[in-house]
Amino acid sequence: MSAAGPEAASRRFEIVDPDAMHALGVNLGERLRAGDLLILTGPLGAGKTTLTRGIGEGLGVRGPVTSPTFVLARTHPSLVDGPPLVHVDAYRLADAEELDDLDLDFERSVVVAEWGAGLHAERDSWLDVVIERPEGRAGDGADDPDWSETLVEPRTVTITAVGPRWQTEAAW
């Protein structure tokens, strides 16, 4: 058993700019199905919302996909008869129980939870997405919540697939 949980496998991606982050999201979105949960972790300005916009495009949902910071969760219905995207900002949630209180339809939706580390307690499968970016330099956009507004620097994205759903997925 790994730190992420049972049956975990990881892949790393070097992302050079917001377009590449968006493209990674599109690629992921095209592979996702109802019931999938993605936990996004990374500092402000890392590209979590940019990735989620791409996921929304890959899923074919109604947009625009924007950060749900002030509403906690936004649902984007499918335009192509697929699952809706539920985009959650879990920053203010204390635990998985509070996530349950939002009454999200996990089984019929794709749920992307920014700041959601540790909120997968009731799930047997999920994708843990960690976005790293250079930090600590003046003017690096550390206080900007949207990567498109920050200085463009490469990111490293590590996706860890946890649980039985991802063990049978050929090309996650």
Score class of each variant (00 low, 15 high):
Ala96Ser: 15
Arg133Pro: 02
Ala117Thr: 08
Ala121Asn: 01
Gly56Met: 01
Pro84Val: 10
Thr75Trp: 00
Pro77Ser: 06
Ala23Glu: 15
Gly163Ala: 08
Ala4Glu: 12
Gly35Asn: 11
Ser125Pro: 11
Leu59Asp: 13
Ile15Lys: 09
Gly116Tyr: 11
Val130His: 11
Val65Gln: 00
Gly58Cys: 02
Ala121Arg: 06
Gly163Ile: 04
His76Cys: 01
Leu79Pro: 03
Gly116Cys: 14
Trp126Thr: 04
Met21Ala: 09
Tyr91Thr: 07
Thr156Ile: 14
Gly82Trp: 05
Gly42Leu: 09
Gly63Asn: 11
Ile15Phe: 12
Glu114Arg: 00
Asp95Asn: 15
Ala23Val: 11
Thr49Tyr: 01
Gly54Ala: 06
Ala3Met: 11
Arg165Ser: 12
Asn27Ile: 08
Thr50Asp: 03
Ser2His: 09
Leu59Trp: 05
Gly25Val: 06
Pro83Val: 07
Glu135Gly: 10
Ala142Gln: 14
Gly82Asn: 11
Val110Ile: 05
Ala90Ile: 05
Asp36Ala: 06
Arg33Phe: 06
Arg92His: 07
Glu107Lys: 14
Glu149Met: 12
Ser67Val: 05
Pro164Trp: 10
Leu99Ala: 00
Arg165Gly: 08
Glu107Ser: 15
Glu132Gly: 05
Glu57Asp: 15
Ala73Thr: 02
Ala113Gln: 05
Thr69His: 05
Leu28Gln: 09
Glu149Cys: 12
Leu104Arg: 04
Arg53Ala: 02
Val162Ile: 13
Trp126Met: 10
Glu30Asn: 09
Ala96Trp: 11
Ala161Lys: 02
Trp172Leu: 15
Gly5Ala: 10
Pro6Phe: 02
Glu30Phe: 01
Ser78Asn: 12
Arg53Asn: 07
Ala90Pro: 01
Glu97Asn: 08
Leu93Phe: 00
Glu149Arg: 15
Gly42Gln: 03
Arg31His: 12
Leu44Phe: 03
Ser10Met: 13
Gly136Tyr: 09
Thr158Lys: 12
Ser125Trp: 02
Trp166Met: 08
Leu28Ile: 15
Ala23Leu: 11
Glu14Cys: 05
Arg165Met: 06
Glu30Tyr: 01
Ala90Tyr: 00
Glu7Asn: 10
Glu169Asn: 08
Arg155Met: 00
Ile15Ala: 12
Ala138His: 13
Gly82Pro: 08
Asp19Gln: 12
Ala142Ser: 14
Pro43Ile: 05
Asp36Phe: 00
Pro18Glu: 09
Gly58Ile: 02
Ala117Arg: 02
Arg92Ser: 08
Met1Glu: 02
Pro154Arg: 10
Val130Glu: 13
Ile159Cys: 15
His87Gly: 01
Glu122Asn: 11
Val112Cys: 12
Val80Leu: 06
Val16Trp: 04
Arg74Pro: 00
Asp140Glu: 14
Ala34Ser: 15
Leu37Cys: 04
Ala23Tyr: 04
Gly60Pro: 08
Asp128Lys: 03
Ala138Ser: 14
Asp143Val: 10
Asp101Ile: 01
Val157His: 15
Pro84Trp: 09
Val112Pro: 02
Gly116Phe: 06
Gly118Trp: 14
Val88Trp: 00
Ile39Leu: 09
Ile131Ala: 09
Leu38Asn: 03
Gly35Ile: 08
Ala94Arg: 08
